[in-house]
Amino acid sequence: MKLTVAEVEHVARLARLELTEDEKNLFAGQMGAILGYVKKLNELNTDDILPTSHAVPMENAFRADQTCPSIGIDKALANAPKRVDSFYYVPKVIE
């Protein structure tokens, strides 16, 4: 099994990744091999099996509706690649 470069490009677009031509070809093969391998799950009949999200059963983890102090603008923006005023700065959307 091998993915087409077009399939790889579509997935990359969804994941917001820009791949080089080499990477596209590499992934077409490797993803194909891995996805081919995982097909082995189809050997199992799971029609009556419920899916598991967490192995440990858990429910209703709540917090009360109480405010707690925010970390403050300077801490919030301390790692910003670019800050303007109290905002994170990002470039314009190019149409």
Partner: peptide, 26 residues
């Protein structure tokens, strides 16, 4: 532009194995 900034930052910032797993998961 904005979308390109996000895409390029991710593409430059992540290594090959991380990209591969993001691709499989996506």
């Amino acid at each position: 532009g904005l979308i390109d900034m996000m895409t390029k930052s991710r593409s430059e910032g992540f290594g090959l194995e991380v990209k591969r797993r993001i691709m499989i998961g996506t």
